[in-house]
């Protein structure tokens, strides 16, 4: 393991999004605050998902996780596709990175971006509503796991794609629908049986459900189930990305 190489690439990936922080950190935080204001205003007092938890408070962790998910994915996928389209991919293909160094640097930066937007949403939200924190370690664990999984998924998409539109399609047809249907705005136990069963196949559901447990100590599924589902996803995606890197798939065949 060459830590200098890995750390440099990690730092480069971080400064890439920090240089445009308005767009990469502030904008998503504001978007999710708009959800809080709109849905919170409309539904407050009409819906009570967990006993003793106001709807707006219930909404916050789901929105935090949704923002974390989308931004961790965006960080790795857009960086890779941009390097491909601009041709600057050669600068990271020429150095002697091991596959693991390369993977950890990208996913590490995605986690930093995920945590940055997550914390951003939280800090603004607590100005507006009281959000309890049942177990901070579970909150942090799920935030890291969620952004790890999505950073790795973003690498899969970024390695596979050849154009920006393909990443955009990945986001609009997969990531956004799956996050909206994963129980960000509701508890899935309120769903009809068919949709309830279907949602249990949605990996994003476990990210949000486990994360929410960290705040309220209540969840649809046992938190251990969510943890195992996330860890399983993390392992599978890690292996997929490493095998892509090892084979040079779409990165070393032009």
């Amino acid at each position: 393991m060459n830590w200098v190489a890995c750390y440099t690439l990690f730092r480069k990936e971080i400064s890439r999004f920090v240089k445009v922080w308005l767009q990469t950190v502030i904008a998503p935080v504001i978007t999710s605050m708009l959800y809080v204001l709109v849905f919170g205003h409309v539904l407050e007092g009409r819906v009570e998902v967990f006993a003793g938890v106001s709807y707006v408070a219930f909404l916050i962790p789901g929105l935090m996780m949704m923002t974390v998910i989308q931004n961790a994915f965006a960080n790795t996928s857009s960086s890779l596709i941009q390097s491909k389209v601009m041709g600057s991919l050669v600068f990271i293909m020429l150095p002697p990175f091991s596959h693991l160094e390369f993977f950890l640097a990208y996913v590490g930066a995605a986690i930093v971006r995920g945590l940055a937007v997550g914390v951003g949403v939280f800090l603004l939200a607590v100005l507006y509503v009281d959000v309890p924190v049942h177990n901070i370690f579970i909150v942090i664990l799920f935030a890291i796991l969620g952004s790890y999984v999505m950073g790795a998924l973003g690498m899969v998409a970024g390695i596979w794609a050849e154009k920006f539109d393909q990443i955009a399609a990945f986001q609009s047809f997969l990531i956004v629908p799956l996050t909206f249907l994963s129980g960000v705005f509701y508890s899935i136990s309120s769903l009809p049986p068919f949709w309830y069963a279907l949602t249990k196949w949605n990996p994003f559901f476990y990210m949000i459900d486990g994360f929410r447990y960290g705040f309220f100590g209540q969840s649809d599924q046992p938190v251990m189930t969510s943890f195992l589902a996330m860890s399983g996803a993390a392992i599978v995606l890690t292996l997929v990305v490493l095998s892509f890197l090892r084979s040079g798939y779409k990165l070393r065949d032009s």
């Binding site: 060459n2 750390y7 690439l9 600068f91 020429l94 002697p96």
Partner: peptide
């Protein structure tokens, strides 16, 4: 090995010095 590619490519996020510093780090320096 050092390779100067035929196509002119660059990373538009960084300055000349930053570019060279990152590239050094990639090689473990």
């Amino acid at each position: 090995l050092g390779v100067v590619p035929q196509e002119i490519v660059m990373d538009p996020f960084f300055t000349v010095r930053e570019t060279l510093q990152f590239q050094s780090g990639y090689f473990g320096i």
